[in-house]
């Protein structure tokens, strides 16, 4: 890959801006995101409040920046959790096969049969809405697809000669799995992980919008969008900016994910 493709540049810039905003938001924001001000109530974008202020006079830009960090943290932890749980299940099921495989995959398929968001809704209803509840619920919802991908890769990898060679070298099964099988599953997993990051972001926004997400007054893009609904006619910026944040970030992640897939798939190389 000699020159960067425009898609990669656009995706990189979008994700980069969000990441930067989130990082900066952790130490500094133009206003205290929780500070209420009656004078600024529903203020339109101006020199003082670049992206306007909400119904309590809180600065939208500051809230978006803090929300970016919250959303990124939730998505990241969700993806890591799902990867960890799914990979373990997939490796065990794929490598040991037989009854282990059948039982694990039966449970997995049962989970897969629910739409992810529905499963998360159910779990949140039981556990109550908070940040860790969301992470757990979404993690459980997403790990079955990871398990499937890993199991598929393991099924073909375990028949390869280099795994047979490892067995002949008197290596234990755990060592063979960790040293030879796992590293060779990484490529499809990275691709899956990027798209999952996008799903998690969207699902978290959707859950927050439904009121099952991070409870107010903490800001997430989803609950900001939800809170803007009654004021959509008077203050369009309240809904517009969080919405833009969600869609542009998703677009950026998807563009990067596509580029990553092209790069990791040898068949796509050099075309």
């Amino acid at each position: 890959m000699s020159a960067l493709k425009p898609n990669v540049v656009i995706g990189g810039v979008l994700v980069g801006v969000v990441a930067l905003a989130a990082l900066v938001g952790m130490i500094w924001t133009p206003f205290n995101p929780l500070a209420v001000s009656f004078t600024a109530r529903l203020a339109p974008p101006s020199e003082l409040h670049w992206l306007g202020a909400d119904e309590f006079g809180r600065d939208v830009l500051s809230r978006l920046m803090v929300a970016a960090a919250t959303s990124a943290r939730i998505s990241l932890l969700t993806v890591v959790g799902a990867l960890f749980a799914g990979t373990t299940v997939g490796l065990v099921a794929g490598y040991f096969q037989g009854w282990t495989d059948r039982i694990l995959m039966a449970l997995n398929n049962a989970l897969l049969a629910f739409p992810g968001i529905l499963l998360a809704l159910g779990l949140l209803a039981i556990m109550g809405a908070n940040e860790y509840g969301i992470i757990l619920a979404l993690g459980v919802a997403y790990s079955p697809s990871v398990a499937r991908v890993v199991r598929g890769a393991v099924l073909s990898l375990r028949e390869t000669d280099f795994v047979a060679a490892s067995r002949i070298m008197d290596n234990s099964e755990i060592y063979t799995i960790v040293r030879h099988i796992l590293p060779n599953c990484i490529a499809p997993l990275i691709v899956l992980a990027t798209s999952m990051f996008g799903w998690a972001l969207l699902a978290e926004s959707a859950l927050s919008f439904l009121g099952l997400g991070v409870p107010p007054p903490a800001a997430t893009w989803g609950n900001m969008l939800a809170a803007s609904r009654p004021f959509i006619a008077q203050a369009v910026w309240l809904g517009l900016f969080p919405g833009l944040c969600i869609s542009l970030t998703l677009m950026g992640i998807n563009l990067l994910g596509d580029a990553l897939r092209d790069r990791l798939d040898p068949r796509m190389r050099g075309v």
Binding site: T160, D161, F162, A165, I168, M169, H180, N184
Partner: peptide, 15 residues
């Protein structure tokens, strides 16, 4: 007992 396989590209871990 050790073994040499047909296609070394497949029997050597690429990583």
């Amino acid at each position: 007992c050790q073994m040499v396989f047909q296609d070394p590209f497949l029997s050597l871990d690429p990583r």
